[in-house]
């Protein structure tokens, strides 16, 4: 059994307008020391997944089913109190906006000390020393002085470093980073990505990085999972996703982003339409109203939900198009356009 395994995870929220199926049957595995990138647009269910792993939906209105196995323990059926003791210690999370994710009224040090002392019965002085040590390790200069600063007295990059220090303070084996660099400037983003890469090697933790930015995913991930409408629509190694993607949505994402590493294309190739509402998910393949190749599925697109099938060597795709046709479309119609003029 892998270190982390999700089995048909479903997270549904009953609302006045209907049932919101934020995550609808998600399955994946992750080993220690490996990085999984989860890519998706707003409402794809990527953040809800991470909160479900941490057990943060427990006690709320969410209806959760399926299994989450962490190091041989099942978490969906575990008690809220038990999952709480794992949170912060065995699994930790880094959030997007460190300014709003840290309490404005407490010092950075106090917040790290608090995170450490909840899981370790040590004196305040010991915890403080540990916090200074952690701040130093994430590259904050003069940590013994900065520990008494408030979050708003830090710059954006330093705040995110402090956030990482807080998440790593209990040496978690699973680290989930939800858009860890989205709120940061590009030069600072590069520093933080470097830092996360180094720390992961040092701590040998399993890392899940959730983002909408394909560039960030490509920098860090071993495997990539693309989510759409609460489901995984493509899963594979980073090479699979960037070199031989097979799902029209993945193609669309790649065609949508201007890239600095290639000559400039005359036109971007966006995906038409907008991401689906999670209450009225389109019938059949959730992506079909936006899919440029929907017509080639022989009418199955809007009636049948495609299954997530292996195309080769662990590369999974959820699409009605036959494998050969997908490859032909990628090679002949998509890839040449991405290569630029």
């Amino acid at each position: 059994m892998s270190f982390l395994e999700l089995n048909d995870l479903r997270v549904h929220f009953p609302t006045d307008d209907g049932l919101v199926k934020s995550v609808d049957g998600l399955t994946f595995k992750l080993e220690r020391g490996k990085t999984l990138g989860i890519v998706g647009e707003s409402g794809s269910g990527k953040s809800v997944t991470s909160l479900a792993i941490l057990g943060l939906h427990k006690g709320g209105r969410a209806m959760i089913s399926g299994e989450i196995w962490l190091d041989g323990e099942e978490l969906v059926s575990a008690s809220a109190e038990h999952v709480r003791t794992l949170r912060g210690k065995k699994m930790a999370m880094i959030f997007q906006d460190p300014l709003s994710a840290m309490h404005p009224y407490y010092t950075v040090g106090a917040q790290i000390v608090e995170a450490y002392r909840i899981h370790h019965h040590v004196s305040k002085a010991v915890a403080r020393k540990h916090a200074i040590d952690m701040l130093g390790r994430v590259g904050i200069p003069q940590p013994e002085r900065r520990i008494d600063s408030y979050p708003h007295e830090f710059s954006g990059g330093m705040r995110q470093r402090a956030m990482i220090a807080m998440a790593l303070s209990c040496d978690p084996e699973l680290l989930i980073a939800d858009e860890p660099t989205t709120a940061l400037d590009v030069t600072v983003q590069a520093q933080i990505l470097d830092l996360m890469r180094d720390l992961q090697q040092e701590f040998n933790s399993a890392l899940i990085i959730i983002t909408h930015d394909l560039g960030v995913v490509a920098e860090l991930s071993d495997d990539i999972l693309v989510m759409y409408g609460g489901k995984c629509i493509e899963y594979g190694t980073a090479e699979d996703i960037f070199e031989r993607p097979e799902h029209p949505y993945t193609w669309g994402l790649l065609g949508s982003m201007p890239r600095l590493d290639r000559a400039r294309t005359e036109r971007l190739m966006p995906i038409k339409g907008t991401p689906p509402s999670l209450i009225n998910v389109p019938s059949g393949c959730a992506f079909h109203p936006r899919c440029a190749f929907e017509g080639r599925t022989g009418g199955k697109a809007n009636t049948q939900v495609p299954e997530l099938l292996e195309t080769e060597g662990g590369h999974l795709v959820r699409c009605h198009l036959p494998r050969e046709e997908r490859r032909a479309i990628w090679e002949n119609e998509i890839k040449p356009n991405l290569e630029s003029v």
């Binding site: 949170r87 999370m93 994710a101 909840i118």
Partner: peptide, 22 residues
């Protein structure tokens, strides 16, 4: 509903501490 409450929970704090301290 603030982000920092979610952070506090993610640290593994008990609900009592989350509610009263944060």
């Amino acid at each position: 509903n603030e982000d920092y409450i979610r952070t506090a929970r993610a640290k593994g704090l008990t609900e009592r501490v989350v509610v009263f301290k944060h």
